[in-house]
Amino acid sequence: MATIAEINDKLRRGKATVWTAEQVKAQVAELGVAKVAAMVDVVCTGTFEPMESSGAVINLGQTDPPIKIRQCWLDGIPAYAGFGAVDLYLGATAAADITNTGDNPNEGDGVAERGGGHIIEDLIAGKSIPLRAVGQGTDCYPRTTLETVISTDRINQFYLYNPRNLYQNFIVGVNGGDRLLYTYLGPLQPRLGNAVYSNPGAIGPLFNDPLLQAIGIGTKIFLGGGVGYIAWEGTQHFPLQKRLPNHTPIGPAATLALIGDAKQMDAHWVRGCYLKNYGPSLMLGVGVPIPVLNEQVIEQCAVKDEDIVAPVVDFSIPRRVRPTFGLVTYGQLKSGKITIEGKTVRVAPLASIARSREVAETLKAWLDAGTFALTEPVAPLPTDRMFLAQDPIGNLSI
C-alpha cells in the first residue's frame, strides 16, 4: 500500500517510477501484476478527442462608462452573457447564425464551420479576436454598445470549464440506411460503408480506473497542455452502465467535469474542429495520472484493447435508443475493420491515437521532471448515478 503523500515525496526526490499506461500493459504481460505494482508509482493515461461539452469562462473587465452585456459575439460567434456584467461563457459548439437554404437540413449549407472551439484555440494561440456586445442600459451601466478587440493579455480570467469530458466509453457509429448521414462522429456512409469510434480505448484515462477509485474531485490533471482539475462529475455521468467482469463498461458510462486556466494552455492541445454538416466542436488533450496505491490499480491498468468492448450503433434510425449490431472489442476496432452481419466494414477513430499517446508521454515527462505533483481528491466521484431521459409533456404518463 502507498499514499499520495508518499508518492509525491518520491517525485520531489526524483525517486519515483512513472510509466505510461502502454508501458504498464506491456510489462504486466511480461512480469505480472505484483512485480509491476512493486516497481511503479504513477501510471500516465491520455486522450486527444472531440469533447464538445466544453467551453471557456471569460471576464472582460469593465469599460468606461460601464456596460452590462446582454448579447455578445466573438468574431461573429455568440457567447452567453447571462452572468455578471462582463462575464461571458463561450461554448465549444457555439456557431454563427446561418439560414439553411437547402431542402434537406442534413445536406444544406446552413452549418457554420467556425465555432466557439476555434475562438478558444485562437485565444490560447495568442491571436486577437474582434468582440461586439450589446448592453442593457441602467443607471449604473449606461453604456449600451461595445466594439473592441480582445486577446489573452487584454482580459482578466480565461479558463476552460467543461461540463462533460472523458467519456469512460462510447459507441461505434454505423449507418444501415440508404443515404449518407452527417453525425457527431462524422460522415457515416450508407449500407454499412464505414464505422467510426471516438474513444482511444485501453490507453484512455477512465478505462484504467474503471471504478473511479484512484481519482476524484480535486485530482490534478493535464488539460490542454496546462494544469487542470477534476471539478465534479460530468453531465450524463452514468457509472451504473453494465460492465464486464473486468469492471469496464460496455457503453457510455462515467464522465468528468474539468476546469483549468486557459492562459497556461497550448493550442497544440486545444483545437477547434468542424464535423461536416454537423457543426463545430473542440479537440482536447487530457491526461490523468493514476497513483499506484495498491496492486488493484495495476491489475486494472493492465486492461488491453482486446479486453474492452463498445456497442455498434445504427444511426439510420433517428431514435433516442437506436438498434445495435452487438459489441466489438477495441482490438477489433484498432485493426481497421470489423465484421457486421457477415460484411467487412472499414473502421476509423475520431480520436487521435498518436496524440493520445503524446499526452500520456508529456504528462510522464512533467512528473519525471518534478514539475507536476499529485493531489488528494477532496471527495469521491459518485458511483450510483442513474441516467434519466427527457420526454415532451405529451409523452408522459401523469
Results as ranks from 00 to 15, higher is better:
Met1Phe: 15
Ile4Tyr: 01
Leu11His: 00
Ala21Leu: 01
Val24Trp: 10
Lys25His: 08
Ala26Pro: 00
Val28Gln: 09
Ala29Glu: 15
Glu30Pro: 00
Gly32Cys: 09
Ala37Ser: 14
Asp41Thr: 11
Asp41Arg: 08
Thr45Phe: 02
Thr47Pro: 00
Ser53Asn: 09
Ala56Leu: 14
Ile58Thr: 14
Ile58Val: 15
Pro65Trp: 06
Lys68Asp: 14
Cys72Gln: 08
Asp75Thr: 05
Gly76Lys: 07
Ile77Ser: 02
Pro78Trp: 10
Ala81Asp: 06
Gly82Asp: 08
Phe83Trp: 10
Gly84Asn: 09
Asp87Leu: 05
Tyr89Cys: 13
Thr93Pro: 00
Ala94Val: 06
Ala94Met: 12
Ala95Asn: 04
Ile98Val: 15
Thr99Asp: 08
Thr99Ala: 04
Asn100Ser: 14
Asn100Lys: 14
Glu107Val: 11
Glu107Tyr: 12
Gly116Thr: 10
Gly116Asn: 03
Gly117His: 05
Asp122Ile: 14
Ile124Met: 03
Gly126His: 08
Gly126Met: 07
Lys127Val: 07
Lys127Met: 09
Lys127Asp: 10
Pro130Gln: 06
Ala133Pro: 02
Ala133Ile: 02
Val134Met: 12
Gly137Leu: 04
Glu147His: 10
Ser151Gln: 12
Thr152Ala: 14
Asn156Tyr: 13
Tyr159Leu: 15
Leu166Thr: 15
Tyr167Leu: 07
Tyr167Cys: 01
Gln168Asn: 06
Asn169Lys: 01
Phe170Ser: 08
Phe170Thr: 04
Gly173Arg: 13
Asn175Ile: 01
Asp178Trp: 02
Leu180Gln: 10
Thr183Ser: 08
Tyr184Glu: 09
Tyr184Asp: 07
Pro190Gly: 11
Pro200Lys: 03
Gly201Cys: 03
Leu206Ser: 03
Leu212Cys: 02
Ile217Thr: 11
Lys220Thr: 12
Ile221Leu: 08
Ile221Trp: 03
Phe222Thr: 12
Phe222Ile: 11
Gly226Val: 06
Gly226Lys: 08
Val227Arg: 11
Gly228Phe: 13
Thr248Arg: 14
Pro249Glu: 09
Ile250Cys: 05
Gly251Glu: 14
Thr255Gln: 03
Leu256Arg: 08
Leu258Ala: 03
Gly260Trp: 12
Met265Gly: 05
Val270Thr: 11
Arg271Leu: 03
Tyr274Gly: 00
Asn277Val: 05
Ser281His: 07
Ser281Arg: 04
Leu282Asn: 01
Leu282Arg: 01
Val286Thr: 15
Asn294Lys: 04
Gln296Phe: 05
Val297Phe: 09
Ala302Lys: 05
Ile308His: 05
Pro311Gln: 01
Val313Ile: 13
Asp314Arg: 05
Val321Thr: 09
Thr329Met: 11
Tyr330Ala: 04
Gln332Met: 05
Leu333Thr: 05
Val345Cys: 14
Val347Glu: 09
Arg357Ala: 02
Arg357Met: 00
Ala365Ser: 13
Trp366Glu: 03
Gly370Lys: 00
Leu374Phe: 04
Leu374Pro: 03
Thr375Asn: 09
Ala379Arg: 14
Asp384Gln: 09
Arg385Cys: 13
Ala389Leu: 06
Ala389His: 06
Pro392Thr: 07
Asn395Ile: 01
